[in-house]
Amino acid sequence: MGLLTSLKSSVSRATSTLFAGSEPKRIGIYGPPNAGKTTLANRIARDWTGDAVGPESHVPHETRRARRKENVEIKRNGKSVTIDVVDTPGVTTKVDYKEFLEHDIEKEDAVRRSREATEGVAEAMHWLREDVDGVIYVLDSAEDPFTQVNTMLIGIIESQDLPVLIFANKIDLEDSNVQRIANAFPQHETVPLSALEGDNMDEVYDKIAEYFG
């Protein structure tokens, strides 16, 4: 992105933020497939609104459309912050319908899922460029964070000058290694949690209020 385009983009963002008033900020939940993005979105939505955002599954690309939960009001230390939570499909550079066959899904359904997954990833990238005010980047702390998708996505988020929190999810797993994630992205704050078990959610909400309030 050229300098002029960057300048224009930054001024545009600053202006829209300035005049946004009390409009809720759209916080995109991004990350690779199966990192626990929807589990986290549901945890946040249930804790503060009582409703879920979407179905969770161990099958990759279960979330194939960006889903938004509006007006999630999080109260911390006597103050409240209202955000729209946008749960996005897991970002990848490849989708092969044969991967779905390994989860006992019939070919016709697998092909349909793969097509929807590709549309979902494209939609997620579009949201990232145009429509979110901040990012929660979710990683499975039991997996290697040094992947190309993570490197590229963090680079794209940084280039958009978006505030970002990195959530090291699945700390309930035996192979969880939060420090590995902190070492991979030391320029950003890493928050450990288990969205499934609800572990360390107090710190999660403190950080959301601090970064996106």
């Binding site: 992105m1 970002v91 990848t92 550079t93 490849k94 989708v95 092969d96 319908y97 092909v111 793969s114 097509r115 590709t118 549309e119 990833v121 494209a122 990238m125 579009h126 990232l128 460029r129 040094f146 190309q148 490197t151 590229m152 680079g155 794209i156 940084e158 280039s159 958009q160 991979a184």
Partner: peptide
């Protein structure tokens, strides 16, 4: 970064069953 974002988006639009399954891309961290 903006070009990488577009590359992912265009790659997704060109994936088709039994044909192109996407790209592998690597740079130094």
């Amino acid at each position: 970064p903006e070009e990488e974002s577009k590359l992912i988006e265009v790659t997704m639009s060109e994936i088709n069953p039994d044909g192109f399954t996407g790209i592998e891309i690597e740079t130094y961290p």
